[in-house]
């Protein structure tokens, strides 16, 4: 197990390296010359002043040196300060994080609770009308644009039926009931695509498991169908489903950006779109890096969890 963890960690390092280089390069494309950005177009500063400013900011050094310096700060959690507000990027992200976490975790839980039973049902009756119907709905839901779904939900439930709020947020600590009301529509919006892919995946994995020899053996020795399902099929079939969570976490965060914007949820996603609009460079850089590193670390944890639950994976890596 230790060797597996070691290998998996080693694989993560180059990915993190690529991510930081990509983010840094992208953002240095934006800057152009930060000194001119700070001075403004009408500045009459002479060359000596400009050079001095460059030196102060450290942008006169070669890019690799600047990258190393930036990385040293980022590793300690220092993402710099916002151009537009007096707070640091880290504070801003941390302040918005609870909303995004609530949204993504709720969507994930809802998706698993709905999709796994549907996938199992479709697999048990594969080829039947139920299976075809479920699989059809699953693949249609994968093409449904989340922003369109969100707008339709707002139109029906907020504007026509007036049963749920269309936008805004109340913290759970302030009023649990209000909080749930505000989260219902965003959660559905974010969960739907995940329900589609998770249903498909659960179905595929279960069909494969149900064809294994040990399932036939269990049936042949006269165990009841429910026992076979519960004791033999589910135990082995549901472990790979965990990996989907790792694969989908990137899509979940991308979806959260859109969902938060539609429903005006004060999360990291809206912070990102607002910062892009305000051309708040350190903020955009910090958020993009934060989201992506979170994605990488989540899939790392999921992989380790998978190996912990399934000895076959561990032995693959010896």
């Amino acid at each position: 197990m230790l060797r597996y963890i070691g290998r998996r960690l080693l694989l993560t390092i180059p990915i993190l390296f690529v991510i930081t280089v990509a983010t840094f390069t992208l953002m240095s494309l934006v800057i152009g010359d930060p000194v001119l950005l700070i001075l403004g177009p009408d500045s009459t500063a002479d060359q000596a002043t400009i050079d001095r400013l460059r030196q102060q900011l450290g942008v006169d050094r070669p890019l690799p040196v600047q990258y190393a310096d930036w990385l040293r700060h980022v590793v300690t959690g220092d993402f710099g300060r916002s151009f537009r507000s007096p707070i640091s990027v880290r504070e801003a992200i941390l302040a918005r994080l609870p909303v995004t976490l609530e949204l993504t975790v709720l969507a994930l839980v809802v998706a698993i609770v709905i999709a796994v039973p549907l996938g199992i049902a479709a697999a048990l009756r594969s080829g039947s009308g139920l299976d075809l119907g479920l699989s059809g709905i699953a693949s249609i839901s994968l093409s449904l644009p989340n922003f369109w779904l969100g707008i339709l939900l707002i139109y029906v439930f907020a504007l026509k039926l007036r049963v749920l709020p269309s936008a805004g947020y109340v913290g759970f600590a302030q009023s649990p009931v209000q909080n749930v009301k505000f989260m219902v529509l965003p959660t559905i919006t974010l969960a739907l695509a995940l329900i589609g892919s998770l249903t498909r995946y659960t179905r595929a994995v279960m069909i494969e498991v149900l064809e294994q020899d040990y399932i036939r053996t269990a049936r042949a020795k006269g165990l009841r169908a429910t026992t076979v399902l519960r004791r033999h099929a589910l135990a082995n079939g549901l472990i790979p489903v965990i990996t989907v969570v790792g694969l989908e976490v990137a899509g979940l965060f991308g979806g959260a950006v859109v969902t938060e914007t539609i429903f005006s949820l004060p999360g990291v996603g809206t912070l990102l779109t607002d910062s892009v609009l305000g051309r708040d460079l350190p903020m955009v850089q910090g958020i993009v890096l934060f989201i992506t590193v979170t994605v990488v670390l989540t899939s790392l944890v999921v992989d380790l969890l998978y190996a912990l639950l399934d000895p076959r994976i561990r032995s693959l890596y010896g």
Partner: peptide, 23 residues
Amino acid sequence: MRTMDGILAFPGLVLALSISFAL
């Protein structure tokens, strides 16, 4: 391939947003 892995770690929308922001 490690570079591709790194790019894949970005949520597609977030990467597209950052690139069009940069350009």
